[in-house]
Computed example of a mutant assay.
Amino acid sequence: MANLRAGLIGIGSMGRHHARVLRALEGVDLVAIADATGDPHGVAGDLELAPDIDTLLKAGLDYVVVAVPTIYHEPVALAVAAAGVHALVEKPLGHDTASAERITAAFESRGLVGAVGHIERYNPAVQSLRVRLENGDLGDVFQIATRRQGPFPARIADVGVVRDLGPHDVDLAAWVAQSTYASISAQVTHRSGREHEDLVSITGRLANGTVANHLINWLSPMKERTTVVTGERGAFVADTLTADLTFYENGTIATTWDHIAGFRGVSEGNVTRFAIAKAEPLATEHAAFRDGILGTSSQYVTMREGLETVAVVDAVLESARTGTTINR
């Protein structure tokens, strides 16, 4: 069977990594690259640098990876769909809900495989966590809390922290809980002198009753990427920076020292950090999309799921603007 022919548009800070992974991906040949702004990281190699999506599509492609700035996702993705070519679009799928709806409809109506690059799903710690939850290791899930904070990234100019980082945690929590958001309440602040928000605190309730909390900012001198899932048997802590997964088990041994028992609340049990295989998330994401095109797997993030995430992000911004809880 011939290898799939892949094209890549956008070779900036994220696109350069897509190029590297595509070149190493079994069963795929990276045959065309496009970027109207040039090749700042020198990733094109021996491939001619196309100026736009129309030129790229002339290479006879099976699929395209779209890694251009979010504001250009819609025109590029619609051109790919019109050409009858599958696409993996970087997150977020569109710059707002209406844009994401148009992109999703374009691919679904043509029976094309459309995916969104929500890379955190493919972090080894999160993948292992999802399997353990499916196995019932935690019992009922009560709360999913994420913290995503660090210094301001100079690469960001057109959006705030909600649209840039928010989709990661919104999608992660919904996927881990296997549920959609029923309500959203959010607060933002502006501390860095930019027009866009640089901190957001989100509280949500999922349709299955799980409470979700997300603290996201560009104001912290420390970099943190932590997901805590609390349930009836304890708590899982996934560190997606190190891809470590730790389980804090509720204790079964009674504490006879009354002062300590009252202070600690739920009794402490064993703490286990799991030894897990740590494949690169981007490589796992690409392999899942390749297999989706081949019809051998459905482990990619669909555009329909990506659309739902954009809608939740829009609700976060609406809640912050109006000071109200948004029920969905």
Rank of each mutant, 00 (worst) to 15 (best):
Q149N: 05
V116N: 12
F107M: 10
T146E: 07
Q143L: 15
R147M: 13
H118S: 12
L165A: 12
N135T: 01
P153E: 12
R163A: 12
Q127E: 13
R132E: 03
A125M: 01
A145C: 14
V161I: 15
G166L: 10
G160Q: 11
Q149K: 12
F142R: 09
N135V: 00
R130L: 03
A125Q: 00
I144A: 06
D171E: 14
L112T: 07
R132N: 07
E120W: 11
R163W: 13
E120Y: 13
V162L: 08
D158A: 15
P153R: 07
Q127P: 02
G139V: 00
A157H: 04
I156T: 13
R147C: 11
D158E: 10
F107L: 14
G117L: 10
E120L: 04
A157S: 09
V131C: 04
R147K: 07
V116P: 05
V131N: 03
D171W: 03
F142V: 03
V170E: 08
F142W: 09
R148C: 00
E134I: 06
P153G: 12
E134S: 15
L138M: 03
I119F: 02
P124Y: 09
P151N: 05
F107S: 07
D169Q: 11
R147F: 08
V131L: 13
R110D: 08
R147Y: 05
R155C: 08
G111R: 07
D171Q: 11
A154L: 05
F142A: 05
R163V: 10
F107P: 09
S128R: 06
V159G: 00
G139A: 03
Q143Y: 06
I144Y: 02
A145F: 01
D169N: 11
G150D: 04
P124Q: 02
Q127H: 07
I144R: 02
V131I: 15
E120P: 02
V162Y: 05
N135M: 13
D169T: 09
N135Y: 00
E108N: 09
S128K: 05
D171T: 05
G166T: 08
D169V: 07
A154C: 01
V116A: 09
V126T: 09
H118E: 15
H168A: 12
D171A: 08
F107T: 10
E134V: 11
L172G: 11
G139Y: 01
V113R: 09
V170L: 08
E134Y: 02
A154D: 14
R121M: 06
I144G: 01
L172N: 07
Y122P: 01
G139D: 01
L133I: 14
G150E: 03
T146V: 05
E134H: 09
G166F: 12
T146G: 05
V131D: 10
I119V: 15
R147N: 15
D137V: 12
P124R: 10
V131A: 11
V161H: 07
A157Y: 05
Y122C: 01
G114N: 04
F107I: 12
V116H: 02
F152V: 04
D137P: 01
L165H: 11
I119G: 00
R121V: 00
E108C: 06
F107W: 06
V141F: 00
L138H: 14
N135P: 00
T146F: 01
V126N: 14
H118T: 14
